[in-house]
Design a protein around this nucleic acid. Structure first.
Length: 579
DNA sequence: GCCGTTTTCGGCCCGACTGTTTTCAGTCG
């Protein structure tokens, strides 16, 4: 049973929770959390790194001790320290940390003074009024705990970026209606273009914070006001999405935008760099470390550029601000020139009415032409999938003739004869060779037998890529965010296999797929593999989803050169033919 | 527990809001 990075990160997070409740040194707790974060954002598996005898202490936030603990987890699947901790402190206490308003101190006191060890007992204690008897806690906190416990039944989760965007427009527009509002920016993971957002972080420039906060909490979609002050406020919308508002004056715009964009890890690293230069960064600006904090003493803060410059760094785009090596790269002037939407010359996975799409071939072609594409691959499904009414045998050949005919008619866009071919359980392709030979582009995808072992699934994909006509592996891990886990594969082997065979991996741009994900893109690029960014559009409207694929690729450090469909048609064609 | 162009010991990002207090601890982002 292989141990995954996420397993190790989870163990470290549990250790951190329990240590925190025990009242351990906060910096020691932070070390475990930092390590967990580093591990989660790693593109390579720790199991492999250990196998190759790499030095784990090279990783940021991993020292001798934690490297040893990682080794222990990889070898035994568990961590002795965690077992010991759970004997002292019930592991269920950690769940109480998730209740808003409860941190380690309060959880500890509730446990020690009331004997409460799990959420059920917490609910009982709260409804019996025993919580408010404790020192430093009162009736308000108690009723808030009860409220949160009730709400948890409908488990809140992160919101897809594309869904969050729907809520953002009207809210931003509403904020602008208030005269005191000079400028509105949506920051946070939204600005970093993360695939999901936990909440929305909105920055407003104004010198009348209180007025703006008041206007904000009166938005028609607000269900609950969590907090409200002179410079910040938090609300929960009817959709369940939390929105945090922060108001600062113009002179602090850059500092506040940086602070509110995050990531938290990136900001902490920046602040540490500032400390080394005897400076202090907060959301109002950059100040001398020991000086006053009056606004006029600010050395920088109006723009993000200015703050980076003060730290001898070039501007770092929000998508890279994850503390995943961007600061080191910036210091060495090695930041990648990231791909943009404009770089793409074509879409390489689309569907029409011929299988499960909504529009006709012609409608798709015209929509792609309007987007300014040079080429478009029409990749309807093959027959294996009953539900999608894929094409078989002669139908495929007829289809290719249709594509060719329309291609000849339209002289300003190339229509690529292609199919999304099912990869069958044994790794063979769902079309006979003589038909595959007729295609200009083959996208191979897995749509069945998701539960094979990691070895078998990897082998299946490698065998499919062995076929000389195979070009692009569609949605390589098969995940659907919040809906379906990725199938188990050894992605590193798949990437190396693709390199060996002259194949490419897809970055599927659909907002609920985004597959490859950001760290996978980064791994592929590091290994020198080229990617295809495709929408998997099932209608003309969905061709516009390309932007999400580009966002994801940018988060994965992808440059235009790393992507095959940034090439003009002739070059692209040559690339497919392996030259 | 990690880490080092002042350090191998002594630091470790920074501020707002709430609820409970009567000056602040705890929580949160």
């Amino acid at each position: 049973m292989p141990v995954y990075n996420s397993d190790i990160a989870e163990i470290f997070e549990k250790v951190a929770d329990l240590l925190e409740i025990e009242g351990a040194n906060q910096f020691r707790v932070r070390a475990y959390r930092d390590a967990a974060r580093t591990i989660r954002s790693l593109s390579r598996s720790l199991t492999d790194l250990i196998e190759e005898e790499e030095d784990l202490t090279e990783l940021s936030g991993i020292g001798e001790d934690l490297a040893g603990k990682i080794q222990e987890i990889v070898e035994t699947g568990e961590l002795d320290q965690l077992e010991r901790l759970t004997r002292q402190t019930p592991a269920d206490l950690a769940k109480m940390l998730e209740i808003s308003g409860l941190g380690p101190k309060r959880v500890r006191s509730i446990h020690e003074d009331l004997g409460v060890s799990n959420l059920k007992q917490l609910r009982a204690a709260a409804s019996e009024g025993r919580i408010q008897e404790l020192d430093g806690l009162g009736p308000k906190t108690e009723s808030k705990i009860l409220e949160d416990l009730e709400k948890r039944d409908g488990e809140q989760q992160r919101t897809l970026l594309a869904v969050a965007e729907e809520f953002t427009g009207p809210l931003v527009e509403y904020l602008r209606e208030e005269d005191a509002v000079e400028r509105v920016e949506v920051a946070g993971s939204y600005r970093r273009r993360k695939e999901t957002v936990g909440d929305l972080d909105i920055l407003v420039i104004s010198d009348q914070g209180e007025k703006v906060a008041e206007h904000f909490v009166n938005f028609e979609d607000v269900e609950e006001v969590v907090s409200q002050g002179e410079t910040r406020a938090s609300v929960v919308l009817r959709s369940g999405l939390q929105v945090d508002l922060r108001v600062v004056v113009e002179q602090s715009y850059g500092a506040a935008l940086m602070y509110f964009t995050g990531s938290k890890a990136h900001n902490i690293s920046l602040r540490e760099m500032a400390v080394e230069k005897d400076l202090k960064i907060n959301e109002y600006g950059v100040f001398p470390a020991d000086g006053d904090q009056e606004q006029e003493d600010s050395i920088a803060g109006e723009s993000e550029q200015e703050i980076y410059r003060l730290l001898d760094l070039p501007f770092i785009v929000p998508e890279l601000r994850e503390d995943r090596g961007e600061l080191e790269a910036a210091r060495e002037d090695q930041l990648p020139e990231l791909i943009t939407l404009d770089d793409l010359k074509g879409d390489l996975q689309t569907h029409t009415q011929a299988s499960d799409g909504r529009n006709t071939l012609r409608e798709m072609a015209e929509a792609a032409r309007e987007l300014g594409y040079e080429y478009l691959a029409l990749t309807d499904h093959t027959g294996y999938l009953g539900v999608t009414q894929g094409l078989e045998g002669d139908e495929v050949l007829e289809r290719m003739e249709e594509i060719q005919a329309l291609d000849e008619e339209l002289d300003d866009i190339v229509l690529v004869k292609s199919m999304e071919v099912d990869i069958l359980e044994d790794g063979s392709l769902d079309l006979p060779d003589e038909i595959l030979d007729q295609l200009d582009l083959v996208v191979g995808s897995i749509h069945s037998h998701f539960n094979l072992s990691r070895e078998k699934q990897t082998e299946r994909i490698l065998r499919a890529m062995d076929h000389p006509q195979f070009n692009i592996l569609g949605h390589p891990t098969g995940r659907r965010i919040h809906e379906r886990e990725p199938y188990r594969i050894d992605l590193e082997k798949v990437i190396e296999g693709a390199l060996d065979r002259g194949c490419f991996l897809e970055v599927n741009a659909h907002p609920s797929r985004l597959d490859l994900k950001d760290t996978h893109c980064q791994l592929a690029v590091e290994k020198g593999l080229k990617l295809a960014i495709s929408t998997d559009a099932h209608s003309t409207d969905e061709l516009r989803l390309m932007a999400y694929g580009v966002d994801q690729a940018r988060r994965g450090w992808v440059t235009p050169d790393d992507v095959i469909n940034t090439r003009p048609w002739k070059e692209f064609q040559a690339l497919l033919n392996g030259s």
